[in-house]
């Protein structure tokens, strides 16, 4: 009998924090590193930073939010592209997945692209365009306060000024905090 009481007390103590956070819906403010992988013969790739406001619920299959990044083009033999991006995105993940939630989603992107063409016909083209993105990865709560996300995606758009295909593989690694407590 004494062991039963002890076990009950320990179980209640262990479950108390989880019960306190029974409201599993969170708003996350995250920062992330972004890399647009280079395409040989087209562009030299770009690296940058971004921020994200995300709604995340352990118990729901939908997640989404707003994000933005600025990626600075690498110097190289190919085109150098600086990409400024604001994205509204939605994604689906398994229900009841809080710690490790694989996901896949789509986004609508508003982009500003500055393109520097190298060589004898050097020129600079600047402009705004719309794009579509798809991404897949994993996200979740690393602890009570911290959130993480890692994804690989593809950003599809037409580069303003040159008419090239922006098409680039985008890798993002992010970390953030829950901000609605």
């Amino acid at each position: 009998m004494r062991h039963l009481v002890t076990a009950n007390a320990l179980a209640a103590a262990a479950l108390a924090p989880a019960t306190a956070r029974a409201d599993s819906e969170e708003t996350v403010l995250a920062v992330h590193l972004t890399s647009i992988l280079p395409q040989e013969g087209t562009h030299a790739g770009a690296d940058g930073v971004g921020a994200e406001l995300r709604f995340f619920d352990d118990d729901e299959m939908m997640t989404g939010g707003f994000s933005a990044f600025a990626a600075f083009g690498r110097q190289g033999a190919d085109e150098r592209r600086d990409v400024l991006d604001v994205r509204f995105h939605l994604a689906m993940k398994p229900e009841d997945a809080g710690r490790v939630a694989p996901y896949a989603g789509v986004g609508l992107d508003l982009l500003h692209v500055t393109t520097h063409l190298p060589g004898p016909d050097a020129m600079t083209a600047r402009g705004t365009t719309l794009g579509v993105s798809v991404e897949a990865g994993v996200m979740g709560k690393a602890s009570r306060r911290w959130f993480y996300r890692a994804s690989v995606g593809y950003l599809g758009a037409i580069v303003p000024g040159t008419g090239d295909d922006l098409g680039g593989v985008v890798v993002q690694l992010g970390v953030g905090r829950m901000i609605d407590d």
């Binding site: 933005a68 600025a70 400024l84 991006d85 402009g127 705004t128």
Partner: peptide, 9 residues
């Protein structure tokens, strides 16, 4: 004259 993305941290 143009429309575009805007963000800050």
């Amino acid at each position: 004259l143009a429309l575009g993305p805007s963000a800050a941290l």
